[in-house]
Nucleic acid binder design. Structure first.
Length: 210
DNA sequence: ACATTAAGTGATT
DNA sequence: AATCACTTAATGT
């Protein structure tokens, strides 16, 4: 296990840092559908995604959810950085899209490593950057794109991170992610099917070409 | 065979 | 694009 972890981090961090990560990190498995964090949770750790995919959703006080982006292997959650600097609670929900493996690291390590290791600073800044970009993209699609385009982006992103061409999902689930109604999704998907871009089955969407 | 859940559709706002 | 009201289809018991 430790060797696997070392290989995983070998190309981005110094030996010494990897040793510390292996030592203090707590590895956790998340089954598909399980929550890594929910809105309102107090966060005292930050996660490295070793394996799997998480979807990151923003949620308002009435329980309306909207997907922001997906996290992949090697990613960490930028919201955690924000949360780590203040006493605020989590502003997002992270749900395992498939069975996933995460290494959790206490936030006090975070401060130490920021000072001590350049590679860690670089990593944090870079992933912060990446998340910010995706966030802006998410805001853009939310604010300016129509539902059909939002759906296209959603399907595209989802097959991308999962590395599949067939999604095992329901129209209702997509509707929740995009914060719309099932009927709307069903109709738009039907349209895409008629255009020959996808094939619809029960609980399954085969993507041919987007 | 029956119940449950997912998906399709016309009409209305 | 949302909602309603209903139909049809797939799937589990």
């Amino acid at each position: 296990m430790k060797e696997k972890l070392k290989d995983f981090f070998a190309h981005q961090f110094e030996e010494e840092l990897i040793d510390e990560i292996v030592e203090v990190g707590e590895i956790k498995f998340y089954r598909e559908g399980e929550h890594l964090m929910s809105v309102g949770d107090k966060i005292d750790f930050f996660p490295f995604l070793l394996r799997g995919v998480f979807k990151i959703l923003s949620e308002d006080d009435k329980g309306n959810e909207v997907i922001m982006y997906f996290l992949e292997r090697g990613d960490t959650c930028a919201c955690v950085f924000i949360n780590s600097l203040s006493t605020e609670k989590s502003c997002i929900r992270a749900v395992a899209e498939i069975d996933s493996e995460v290494i959790l690291i206490k936030l006090n390590q975070f401060d130490k490593w920021m000072v001590k290791y350049k590679s860690f600073r670089d990593y944090v800044l870079e992933s912060y950057n990446l998340r910010l970009k995706e966030m802006i993209e998410a805001i853009d699609t939310l604010a300016f794109k129509k539902m059909d385009q939002r759906l296209l982006k959603y399907l595209h992103d989802r097959i991308q991170v999962l590395r599949v061409t067939t999604l095992n999902t329901t129209h209702q689930e997509i509707a929740y992610d995009l914060n719309t109604s099932r009927v709307v999704i069903s109709r738009l998907l039907k349209q895409l099917e008629n255009e020959g871009k996808i094939i619809l089955k029960r609980n399954r969407i085969e993507i041919l070409n987007l």
